[in-house]
Amino acid sequence: MSKTRFSPFTILLIVLGLFLAVFPFVNDSRTMLILFTQIFIFSIFAMSYNLLLGYTGIVSFGHAMFFGLGAYAIGICMKKLEPGWNGVLLAVLITVALCAVLSFLVGILTLRLKSHFFAMLTLAVAGLLMVTAEKWRSLTMGNDGFTFRVPDLLKDRISLYFIALVFMVLTYLLMRRFTFSPVGKVLVAIRENEQRVESLGYRVLNYKIIANVVAGTIAGFSGILYAVSLRFVNTSVFATEVTLDALLMTIIGGVGTLFGPILGAALIEIAQHGLMDLAKVHWIFERWVILFGTIFILVVMFFPKGIVGSALQWQFKRKNSQKATLDKKERSKAATH
């Protein structure tokens, strides 16, 4: 057995990646392209959320604040400056700076307290930002929002599809690298037993803040992509619903797994898309939150690891039992000899 052998899961991922890479050339229907781009963007957002919820055990109810900051940063830069690459670069820099500073401040204020203080403060800050965006009309046009022009390359649906795809893959790889790094291991340890990590001499607060800053910055990038894909931004980017979407995606897909948020984002986006069509058939489908909420509750109660986590667990168990039966056979063989 060679060392570089890929696991079946990695092969599956590569096949999936190749499929997504050729998909626009096989089927270039506009709705599908837009749907897939949405999935990629929300995958990035959900992955950043997962770093908090799944890997560090922090619940945020205001993750939308970073998403919204990114969206407004690109929108305002494109509107006030000419829609060129300099503006995009400036927007990215502004997003990174704002998200990093904000996540640092929020983290240092409440991450030393019980988990719900962080949940409440993030909810409050996201609410404050939403009010700010609503009232600062000269910059944001208030509740109505505004449309803006983007560089030609970002206008093209296919190139935008690939940009979002590349960003998603990059975020996935970054998450993989980050969670396997020593810092990532400490984060998982904090999730599992915070007191223990503290008594081992780690400064828990610092690690939590690192996780928050990384997650916030990545969420800002997803916000930029989101606004670019719509070429429009309004206050809804700060809404609690955006955070709830990330929460649903992460929990249903698999909290604390690398691939879970991507699967969750795909499932929820596709289901929302499908249910929107079904809403014309019967009004009950408009109330899709009931369906997702119920699934969400059941998942939290019975499969706390989500789809991917439960699948991995099942596979792990099967492997172990196979191993156990093999061991038994070996032993009985040895006994007969």
């Binding site: 619940v59 109810f61 709830l244 929460l247 929990i251 939150v289 997702f292 909420g293 119920t294 969400f296 509750i297 939290v300 109660m301």
Partner: peptide, 8 residues
């Protein structure tokens, strides 16, 4: 998480 789901 679960009480938030119930709220929704």
């Amino acid at each position: 998480l679960i009480t938030l789901g119930a709220m929704l």
